[in-house]
Amino acid sequence: MTRAFFALIGRDLRLAARIGGGGGMAVFFFLVVVAVVPLGIGPDLNLLARIAPGMLWVALLLSSLLTLDRLFQADYEDGSLDLLAMGRLPLELVAAAKATGHFLTTGLPLVVAAPLPGLMLNLEVSAFPALMLAMLAGAPALSFLGIIGAGLTVGIRRGGLLASLLVLPFYIPVLIFGVAAARAALFGFPDGVAGQSLTLLCAVALASLVLGPVAAAAALRANLR
């Protein structure tokens, strides 16, 4: 069972590497979103530095959403999702493997790449460790909550947009706690806020590790009947 689980993750990684250049596309999108912001609000470096943590987080949410629709859809279309559902690996673990693959191919590259757009937005270097730590804790939550939306909309034409609409409200706690952790490091919020927000972020992430696969498996069962 463990082997099947890791084999599934490995398969998704190889597929992503061949089709999308690994996390390349997601990182590219992330950079484009960040580059568009100064064009929209003007090149004021002080203003950009103030909104940088929030912008980076919003860009992370958007890039995560953008890749959701292919998560089950490709496997659904070529029939391998039916095979996975009939296999011995429980559907919950299939969903968990899919979410892990999504995190490794989109979440993790974005966290690693975050300093670059951070510098472009004039974010202080001293805030980078806190920001990246928060992103590292939050990105798995985005993937594991995201599979719920992907599972619910599998088999629907233009399901990607609907999946984003369904999932985005669930992302709000991750966004709030994640941005707070980064901002606390930047502006010196009252004592304890940085630690508190990181703890809460980890709590949300752990809860989504359980809720995501269970709900996504239930959604897949509903859609695959």
């Binding site: 719920i148 239930a218 509903a222 009947r225």
Partner: peptide, 12 residues
Amino acid sequence: RAARAAAVLALV
């Protein structure tokens, strides 16, 4: 199918 998917969404 819609009923079951929507029920999962409502519970989540």
